[in-house]
Design a protein around this nucleic acid. Structure first.
Lengths: 123, 123
DNA sequence: GTCGTTGCAAAGCGTTTGCAGCCTA
DNA sequence: TAGGCTGCAAACGCTTTGCAACGAC
């Protein structure tokens, strides 16, 4: 029952925390393998699922793509992806706006939002 | 090169057009098989991909779920899913709001939005 | 008759799981 | 030492693809 602190878990969490953008499983695997070369994919998935369950990390779902992961507590934000250079930028300040879209008598509990277009540099 | 009009394609498009909500592949398959019992999954996927390429239909991506499909031209809208009864409701009128979230010097070309919470009846 | 389309089965990709051995507490 | 954790490989669900037969034009 006790939560154990393994090198694998530290490596996965470390990779996520050191990255300024959300990471996919392949990214996590190759970064974490610098610290733990024998790390397997299955273990990464199991660690991610444990961390998700304990709400230490959060998933970022871009439509039609494999999920990305980032540490919890980075605040509520969404992402803008540049269609040309694929960079991801954070966007904040959506809550007041979205409340207006909710039909009356409905309770809005959460939302997902994803913007895409051209970034500053590519414009 | 010419576009052919097969029973399979008619059945798939028919299923989508007769439904008031977006459908998943399994739904499409079972509805369209009423008209074409031998219809295979692979064919459904191929038809959907052709229709997507020709922009006759559109995908609805709910985070972490298999994609749904609906005919193009139903207008720009997003979905609200009730967490209790799983019903999907349409939501419109987001564009003016989202422009405000875009950083200056960025060009917003599109977005995806998904709301969830409790619907009228479940509230 | 042509050649786009179909059905089947196999393969692909991301993710999960069974199992035996490992290692943290 | 116990039992959570790991690595491997097999299995999974969804989607795509190779191939030979089919059928719309």
């Amino acid at each position: 029952m006790a939560e154990r602190n393994t090198r694998q878990k530290q490596a996965v969490l470390g990779a996520l925390k050191e990255s300024s953008t959300p990471l996919g499983v392949a990214d996590i695997l190759s970064i974490a393998r610098e610290a733990v070369p024998t790390l397997s994919q299955a273990t990464v998935y199991r660690i991610l699922n444990r961390l998700l369950k304990k709400r230490k990390i959060v998933t970022v779902q871009l439509p039609g793509e494999a999920p990305l992961y980032e540490p919890a507590g980075r605040g509520h934000h969404h992402f803008f992806r540049c269609r040309r250079c694929q960079s991801m930028y954070e966007v904040a300040g959506c809550d007041e706006l979205l409340g207006r879209l909710t039909p009356s008598n409905f309770t809005l509990e959460g939302h997902d939002l994803f913007l895409y277009g051209l970034c500053d540099s590519c414009n």
